[in-house]
Design a protein around this nucleic acid. Structure first.
Lengths: 329, 329
DNA sequence: GTGAAAGCGCTAACAA
DNA sequence: TTGTTAGCGCTTTCAC
């Protein structure tokens, strides 16, 4: 690995000039050419580590997410990646498994690697950002809030929950359950609140707590609570799933019980990834995950470039895709 | 951010001693305690950038993959991540979109960030590793070879293609097509070769080139070539899909045409991710993606720690999961 | 076991 | 416009 000094020597200039060439400062055409030529000969690549140490800021941004295997988050990651790499930044994907300890470790690394910024889908509402924010690094919250006054991009979760539920009501279902993620996760809670509101309006006599299940945001979680609901003395005739994986789990269980939709109503908040035998009888509330990533990355880059306005929160619209095969004949 | 000097001053020792404490060298208990105490008070975290610059090697490994949205690769990433973070390394996930330019950029970054090593699922057989290998950094190839004499972990691709095809033959299908990824991708080619061998044995009169389609390793690719095959004057009565996403696309198209398996035979190399309405009539050749990631990460860590034996290639077994609903009555 | 000091490769004052 | 120079924070000889 050639250094700036070797390039300087070969080009007959000072190291500073080489640095300037590679940072777009004012250097005469003549010397610029000489430097570029020398750099090519020596296959010089700037040492980013040294640059980072000197500048106290790297061209890496951390994307911290709770589940790398969830297509919702990988789709988001795509959005982030596209914007970031366009701007010359690389993205470190940090998978926390929804564990705050793992998350804390990664946030610490973001600090000690001088990363330019962090995009964070918090593992829980207990995430501590004090140290990170104290360093002055910008942080953008995605998918979920953090309890700090920072930029954020979220889905219209309550609306999504409402839309999903409303759709089932219109289709004629009357005992509509809800399965969602851990209660301490904002998205899980909000979506359930949307469901709760619609339930209260249409079926004021129903006991929402009997029909609501908090679980994990994973396939096995969806399976487990769906089984529970089916085992109820008076089981539901429809269910709202709080995210994509929960939806997959629920539909799996229902199918195994011979209750293919639309025998039972199913609405999912989030897209069903990679569906094969299309469950046309399932209502899907699409969440623009990629768009969320793009928006968050743009906001972060603005902050990195010195933008100093008050914290903003962007709320993204969702789009309802009703079940094609009309339910309940 | 406190530095080693401030900790040293507070603890009444030299900076070198602080460094030694944080690197597990021999320091008296007394001073060790003083240093740890001071570090705690000052919330000291070692600056990794400085360490990397000095040591000429970071604790970051790059995982370079062609498609971050493919569950096969995220599952693999999980395996890598688990092993790496266990050993104190973090993983940078680099998505190349199967483009060699993007890939080259990331490999360059791996060099200029002094990353400890690279795990690479090459975008094509044209990947140039000369520069990277010249730096002495270890590289482990996953999923696909690279043409270089380096460590690798691959699936038994030919066997997988054979198993998938053989399974369809046993189920009674006789005109078995194959859709697979780009020809220049080793896995795509090898799996097709497996199919070709079985075809030649059982149906020596069939023209394999008529029934074989190279495409992308994506859902839309699968859809496209499946449509092509169905439009043939003498369409196939079964199809082998070269990877998971291709399988999804093919099954989608078949379903849309009212040809739900087992009306037409389908075998997929790779697991069908997040299936809802389980396509029981589909044969799946499972590929141990997570295991591949784990193995690769372990091999890389060994190399990072100075292991110097000749390059090894590990071939991973796959497991056939036959269609449950027996095909062809 | 411990400290002093050099230097990893770069950038940014400051001078010229 | 260009060069000189002093660090960024750490590790690692080399003395003691």
């Amino acid at each position: 690995m050639a250094t700036i000094y070797e390039v300087a020597k070969l080009a007959g200039v000072s190291p500073a000039t080489v640095s300037r060439v590679f940072n777009g400062m004012g250097v005469s055409d003549e010397k610029t050419l000489a430097v570029r030529d020398a750099a090519r000969q020596l296959k010089f690549t700037p040492n980013r580590t040294a640059r980072t140490l000197r500048r106290q800021a790297s061209e890496v941004i951390a994307l911290v997410i709770p589940d790398i295997e969830n297509p919702y988050f990988t789709e988001m990651a795509r959005g982030v990646e596209d914007v970031a790499s366009q701007a010359g930044y690389s993205v470190v994907l940090c998978n926390t498994d929804a564990q705050i300890e793992k998350e804390a470790t990664y946030l610490q690394i973001a600090i000690s690697e001088h990363m330019a910024g962090v995009i964070l889908a918090a593992a829980s509402d207990h995430t501590n950002l004090d140290e990170l924010l104290a360093t002055g690094r910008p942080v953008v919250a995605v998918d979920r809030g953090t309890g700090y006054d920072i930029d954020g991009v979220v889905m219209a979760n309550r609306t999504a929950g409402q839309a999903a539920t409303e759709n089932l009501v219109q289709a004629g279902y009357r005992r509509i359950a809800c399965i969602t993620g851990p209660q301490h996760i904002e998205t899980a809670y909000e979506r359930a609140q949307g469901w709760r509101a619609v339930l209260a309006r249409h079926f004021p006599d129903a006991d929402p707590d009997e029909l609501l299940r908090y679980s994990t945001f994973r396939v096995d979680g969806g399976r487990e609570v769906m089984e529970e609901l089916l085992a109820l003395p008076d089981p539901p005739d429809a269910v709202v799933a709080g995210n994509n994986l929960l939806g997959v789990g629920a539909i799996q269980v229902l199918t195994e019980h011979g209750m293919t939709p639309p025998k039972i109503g199913v609405a999912v908040v989030g897209s069903l990834p990679f569906t094969t035998l299309t469950p046309t009888a399932v209502t899907v509330v699409r969440l623009p995950a990629r768009h969320m990533g793009v928006t968050a990355a743009k906001m972060l880059l603005e902050r990195i470039n010195g933008d100093d306005q008050p914290a903003r929160t962007v709320v993204l619209r969702n789009e309802v895709q009703p079940a094609r095969a009309s339910a309940r004949g």
